[in-house]
Structures are given as structure tokens and as C-alpha cells.
């Protein structure tokens, strides 16, 4: 485990500090009947040899982190100095790839998570009041969007929202706009991705809340009823407080899951309009030229992001543990 978990991290950090070798140039004198010309040529052998000697590439320290493709410190500072307004500053920053990915990832994470908690809670309450026999069936169908492979699930939805697919076509009819396409505009793509996110993860929240509802103390509910609490008041003052620890749990898990949003972007073919941190790593790695160092730099930054996101949780777990022991 040590080998496969910590070594890659070390390797990623190492790679992020190197860039590809420059090509080795040699000056060659070509002499023919008309005299000698000097030409610069790429010495392929020497380049290959250099690559063999140091497969990592040249050591460049932290400069990978601050170049335009990543933190782009000089560009951001530049944009800040020359900004006309905050909106203008935002536009400029948004044009930098890493910041675009960060913005999308954060917006996605913090929109989808609350929405799916609410939806999951509503479904759980509704299912709980169902007849016993129906419950199993409903749970079966509810699990499907969550269990299905994320890429496959997003493809299924992608085909349905295609302008020739059922949902896309219906939307066109609804808004009476034959050119309406969910894939063409950035904001619509974002909304589609988030709808997919909620669809995919709501079952998880539902299952957890449903299990929590089974352990709901009946006595408290009954005494609330005797005290004259209405249905709504019972939910507000008895059920929700009972489920609060579960809400924290679901929120935590889903924050982590949504932070690494990746497959839907590939499935929806949306990389032109929305990129997440994971998807830019994927594009870097998958391209023709395999930009390993660039990908590693983004990876390191993502891992840092995860740690920042997790640090309050880790701290709390540690405290709880200390108390228990």
C-alpha cells in the first residue's frame, strides 16, 4: 500500500518540478558547390540521449506552478492592476485554464451538494409514508442512478438531451425555439451538468436518510402529536434534528465526491464549456504530447485543495477520537 499510494504522490511532486527537455540544437555546416551554409538542426539523437539520462526532464523548481497554465501569478497580478471593475477582473481570471476549472469545480460542488441533500430528504420522507410492499420497488429504482457507471449514466442523459433526443426536443417545443441546444451555451451546459450531479447522487442521500428515519424514536413523535404539533411542525422539530448528524455525513461524502467531478464532463463532451480540476488533468495526460509535468502540477494543486477542503473534517475526527480514547 505504501508503495502504491505514497510513491506516486512523491513522483507527482517530483514531476511537477520538471519540464520537458529543450531540443538539442547543433549547428551543421552544409557545404556544396556554392559554398558553405550554416544551419541549425535538431539533434534527435542527443535529445533522446538526454531524455534517457534524465527521464524527468529539466529541473525548474516551482516555475511550473506559476506559469500561465497553472497559478499564473503574473497574469492575475496583471489583471488586478489593470482591472476596470471587479467583473472585468473576473473575466480576465476566468480566461486562465486553472482558474476556470477551480471556479467550475467549486460552483458545482457547492450547488449540487445542498440540492441533492434536499431532494434526498424529500424522497426519504415520501417513501417512508408509502405502503410496505411498494417500498422495496421504489428503493430498487432509486438506487439505479447511483449504482450505474458515472460515464454511462451521463451518456444516457446526454443522448436524451441531444437536440434530436427526447428531452432536448421537448424543450425546443416548450420554448418554441428550434435552435435551442443545451450543449451550445456555457450556462446551459453548467446547469445540465449540475442536474446530472443531483440525479446521480440524490439516491445516496435518500438511502442514508431513509435508514435514519427507521431509527426515529416513535415516542417523541407521539408526544409531539399529543402536544398538538402539526405534521410540518413534527418534521421541523422532531425529524430534522434527529437527522442532523446524517446530514453532516452526507454533506461530507458528497462534498468530496463532487469535488472530483470528472466523468460527466467527458460523457457530456462538455470540456469546451466546463472544465473541472480532474478533467484538465485528464486532458493533459490524454493528449498527443502527454504533458506529464503539467498534469502533475495540477495534481499537486488538486491534492492541496482536497487537504484544505478536508482539514476541518480531519481536525474534528481527530478531536472526537481523542475524546473517545
Amino acid at each position: 500500500m505504501l508503495l502504491f499510494i505514497f510513491l506516486p504522490i512523491v513522483s507527482v511532486v517530483m514531476q511537477s518540478m520538471h519540464i520537458d527537455h529543450e531540443q538539442v540544437f547543433v549547428e551543421v555546416e552544409n557545404c556544396d558547390f556554392f559554398g558553405c551554409k550554416k544551419a541549425t538542426m535538431v539533434d534527435a539523437d542527443a535529445t533522446a540521449e538526454l531524455k534517457k539520462e534524465q527521464p524527468l526532464g529539466r529541473f525548474v523548481g516551482l516555475s511550473n506552478y506559476i506559469n500561465r497554465a497553472h497559478l499564473a501569478t503574473s497574469e492575475v497580478a496583471d489583471a488586478w492592476r489593470n482591472k476596470d471593475s471587479l467583473g472585468d477582473f473576473y473575466d480576465r481570471v476566468y480566461n486562465l485554464p486553472l482558474y476556470r476549472a477551480i471556479i467550475f469545480t467549486l460552483v458545482y460542488t457547492f450547488t449540487v451538494t445542498p440540492l441533492l441533500i434536499i431532494l434526498g430528504f424529500l424522497i426519504a420522507i415520501a417513501v417512508n409514508s408509502l405502503h410496505q410492499r411498494l417500498k422495496g420497488l421504489v428503493i430498487f429504482f432509486s438506487l439505479l442512478p447511483m449504482i450505474v457507471t458515472p460515464l454511462v449514466g451521463s451518456l444516457i442523459l446526454f443522448w436524451m438531451i441531444d437536440s434530436r433526443g427526447i428531452i432536448g426536443h421537448s424543450l425546443q417545443m416548450l420554448f418554441d425555439d428550434p435552435d435551442l441546444s443545451l450543449k451550445a451555451s456555457t450556462s446551459l451546459t453548467w446547469i445540465t451538468l449540475m442536474v446530472y450531479g443531483v440525479w446521480h447522487s440524490a439516491p445516496f442521500a435518500f438511502v442514508i436518510f431513509y435508514a435514519g428515519l427507521q431509527t426515529l424514536p416513535q415516542d417523541t413523535l407521539e408526544s409531539a402529536m399529543i402536544d398538538g404539533a402539526s405534521r410540518w411542525e413534527r418534521i421541523r422539530y422532531v425529524v430534522i434534528p434527529h437527522l442532523t448528524p446524517l446530514v453532516t455525513f452526507v454533506a461530507l461524502i458528497q462534498l468530496m465526491d463532487n469535488f472530483r467531478v470528472f466523468e460527466p464532463i467527458v460523457g457530456f463532451n462538455a470540456s469546451a464549456h466546463a472544465t473541472s480540476l480532474s478533467s484538465i488533468i485528464y486532458t493533459d495526460l490524454g493528449g498527443e504530447s502527454q504533458l506529464l509535468s503539467s498534469a502533475s502540477t495540477t495534481s499537486v494543486l488538486t491534492i492541496l485543495g482536497v487537504i484544505i477542503l478536508l482539514s476541518p473534517v480531519l481536525y474534528r475526527t481527530w478531536r472526537d477520537w481523542e475524546r473517545k480514547v
Binding site: S278, I281, S299
Partner: peptide, 12 residues
């Protein structure tokens, strides 16, 4: 919490 793809860069 860690996206698996961040590790993949290190494996490659």
C-alpha cells in the same frame, strides 16, 4: 476525497 486521476499522473 482524492481524485484517482491525480495519482495516475504519478504512475504513468
Amino acid at each position: 476525497a482524492m481524485p484517482p486521476i491525480t495519482l495516475v499522473a504519478g504512475y504513468l
